[in-house]
Amino acid sequence: MSITTTHERRPLVPGRRAASSERSRRLQRVATTTGLRLIVPALILAAWWAGSRAETAGLFVADPFETFTRVRTDFLAAGEGHAFLGDATWDHLFPGVWRALQGLGLAVVVGVGIGIALGRNRILMALFQPLIHLGRSLPSPALVGVFFFVFGTGDSPKVFLIAFSVVWPILFNTIDGVSSIGAARMQAAAVFKINRWDRLVHIVLPGAAPKIFAGMRTAMSLSLIIMIISELQKSQNGLGYLLIQSQRNFDYTGFWAVLVVLAILGVVMNIIFTIIERRVLAWHRGATQQHD
């Protein structure tokens, strides 16, 4: 008897009713969290506005509404052939972001490549471990001068500085991910005579991918920070350059507009990253939810 009852399905109609009340409850929950999430930004905006009205702070804090207007005119104004984007977007935002992406891309290639080599080879790991720990513990902004000295002017010192700064989380996470794949899977690969290349592409890389993505997320946030730092000196464009310029010209509205654009940039890049990650790691989300 007990065996049959355990396999019994719940009756259909109460089940459906349960599902619909579940849906309305979830909707309510989403509405509540969205409402809660809006409170703090609204408070910040109010504080910002109050600050801009205040006697002393008002000298440095631009009016939020003027700031948003500046964001619109500088970054979003529709000129001809500008595809609805303003001069500042083309002259400063895009070149800087392009350098950050180049640096990030370089760091991913180098970090994942070296990480796999080290994660799979104990001797290489022992050889290079001291060097890696040394490299990681160097605060990279201190190296700005070195990179300008070695790579000259133009984009390359900035790109290489970004790559050098953000490679570490990717490298360490890749090493970690590769060693987390497990002996059983590698043994299965050996028994089924999977060649080295297929093992790398179809077992090691996907197996390490969850950790690699975690490292890339950290690296992405870091790349924006280093992007700004690299543009603060010896620069002709970029948001960092724009920050310095507006500060020197006592253009605080412009300065605050850049900050707003930076915040939006961070959010947008995070959203894009999350979309890519969800696609690539769909299996991982499913597999971990299953085992909870």
């Binding site: 059983a184 899977r185 043994q187 299965a188 179809h202 991982h284």
Partner: peptide, 25 residues
């Protein structure tokens, strides 16, 4: 020679669907 391992959850590849797991070797 082919082998079936004790722990399916560690010897199958969770990022491949069933057909691809079987086809992989």
């Amino acid at each position: 020679l082919a082998m079936v391992f004790q722990d399916y959850s560690r010897s199958l590849f969770p990022w491949m669907r069933v057909a691809k797991n079987v086809a992989f070797p």
